[in-house]
Design a protein around this nucleic acid. Structure first.
Ligand SMILES: [Mn+2]
Ligand SMILES: [Mn+2]
Ligand SMILES: [Zn+2]
Ligand SMILES: [Zn+2]
Lengths: 132, 132
DNA sequence: ACACCTGTTTAGAACCATTATAAACTGCGA
DNA sequence: TCGCAGTTTATAATGGTTCTAAACAGGTGT
């Protein structure tokens, strides 16, 4: 099991639930964006046993802390996560609430000229809102 | 009263509460960022009568819809609003949760190369996360 | 000034995503 | 195999936001 290794190396016990959530999140060709509710449904579809909602939250937060998932800064009543952890940006379609990846090369270099004393830049994220 | 005009011209009745909220939001030298909770406290400080929380929510949403306020896309348990409605970007200090304006000129032009069929760009917002 | 209509305010309840709780369970090293 | 710390789980609690419906107040016409 490839995920057992990954989890152990991260200091996370490779429990059955975590490995299964890994399979749902990372066994795909393409990366994707999801809410906890989306993930809950994906899990129900793909596995037979039940995983409690609390465990889904716990696991997503653990994976986010380890850098295996990213939160997407967006105004919504639910938090959006991304399995694409490369630096990249997003289109946000206001009509249907869907996110679309913008590769870094689709946006070009962003040069932040202002500096804040004693602080350094951790990330730069661009959100491009779309309308019809 | 300058705000009565502004409100009437927007199709909003210039009620006592709306005018007072205008004074709290727009009578300042500098623009600022706030949550509903921040605004509630500012209102308590500056005016004598009480304005209900529901009215604060209603008014902020009405002003946002009219374009007098903007929401800032950010992950937080509370929604952040901005009295600066010019196109601009933000530093987000992860340590203390504070937002700092980045003028458009501080970031330089952003060239979105990817196009989505039938959609046009409504806004481009950059969030620069800061750490120590 | 008055009545009337409709938009607005209000207290409080409801909503719902998320987090906290605490008891049962389990991976894993001794 | 034991024991423990980490994890899962059902369930409750939290808290920002939205909803409800009754009271209130601009604005218009008379
Ligand atoms: Mn959120
Ligand atoms: Mn929000
Ligand atoms: Zn993405
Ligand atoms: Zn701003």
């Amino acid at each position: 099991m490839k995920y057992k290794e990954k989890l152990r190396n991260s200091g996370l016990r490779p429990t059955k639930q975590r490995v299964q959530i890994c399979e749902v999140l990372f066994d795909t060709e393409k990366t994707f964006h999801f809410t906890i509710n989306d993930l809950e449904r994906k899990i129900k579809d793909k596995i037979d046993n039940k995983i409690s909602l609390a465990t889904i939250y716990n696991t997503v937060h653990a994976f986010e802390k380890k850098g295996y998932l990213k939160q997407i800064p967006i105004n919504s009543n639910q938090t959006y996560f991304d399995t694409n952890i490369n630096d990249h940006h997003h289109f946000y379609d206001l009509k249907d609430g869907k996110l679309i990846d913008l590769e870094n090369s689709d946006v070009g270099p962003i040069n932040i000229k202002k500096k804040i004393n004693g602080k350094k830049i951790k990330s730069i994220e661009v959100l491009v809102k779309l309308e019809d």
